[in-house]
Design a protein around this nucleic acid. Sequence first.
DNA 1: TAGCGTGTTGAAAACCATTATCATTGCAGT
DNA 2: ACTGCAATGATAATGGTTTTCAACACGCTA
Lengths: 141, 141
Amino acid sequence: MSTQNLKEAGLKVTLPRLRVLEVLEASEHRHLSAEEVYKRLIEADSEVGLATVYRVLTQFESAGLVSRRHFDGGQALFELNDDDDHSHIVCVKTGHVEEFNDPIIEQRLLEISEELGYTMNDHTIVVYGERNKVKTGKAGR
Amino acid sequence: MSTQNLKEAGLKVTLPRLRVLEVLEASEHRHLSAEEVYKRLIEADSEVGLATVYRVLTQFESAGLVSRRHFDGGQALFELNDDDDHSHIVCVKTGHVEEFNDPIIEQRLLEISEELGYTMNDHTIVVYGERNKVKTGKAGR
DNA sequence: TAGCGTGTTGAAAACCATTATCATTGCAGT
DNA sequence: ACTGCAATGATAATGGTTTTCAACACGCTA
């Protein structure tokens, strides 16, 4: 129940916050821009202002509920924080975003940070590439 | 000589382009925003418009002379491309940026991209952390 | 369950970095 | 030097995001 998440995050339970959370949860593993969240709310007949979407997303970010990503310097994409922290691979042609996670790299980053005299808080890895034609075993997609 | 770089990049040699290149070269290994480049030009009594700074930097990027980074989604930072491609570690308190390079990670990213069906063009690794107090052996800095 | 205070909301204006516009200027090749 | 076309500068426009501020609603208390 979303209400719980909000309370745990120390945020007052309000309609807009619930609605935004719902949208994010309904599209788990997707990366949504504030504008996209806003559109989905409108489509769902939830009257929430764009400014509020931004405010709420920013609050969620502070509360650790979502992460804000800047893959291309344009609009930010927001993603619900689940347990595992992962890296991203972005198709430069389609903008398609996938996630991956690699313990070896994680380990190396920790080591490197330490070597350089830093305490690592967080990190971002984005791979830009072209998605190869999917080898269609039978029915392509 | 900067003139050479510009010709090689297929760019007409103009005063603004030379000046911007000089600024970038004069601060090698630093990451400058367009505004910072602009300010340095003004300080050097080089009359170059901000719009031109942006244009020139964008052209340099296309020509492969500089890279544009979006560490925080705010203003972009530009950095002269030297030989080695490197990753960045940013101090979340001071904004200080350092570079590092790790062959193991590079290798893993290539492998991972392939596994996921991508041809890697490029990648960005940014580590955010706190720079530990420098252990001052004698004279701190 | 009603009343109240404070935090939240919405609409619009403000903001900031960046890009487009367009008349003027200056390279580069003859 | 002359000329064409690309480059420049000042300013307006743009896009994403944040701020402003009056109206409103959550959650606590009685």
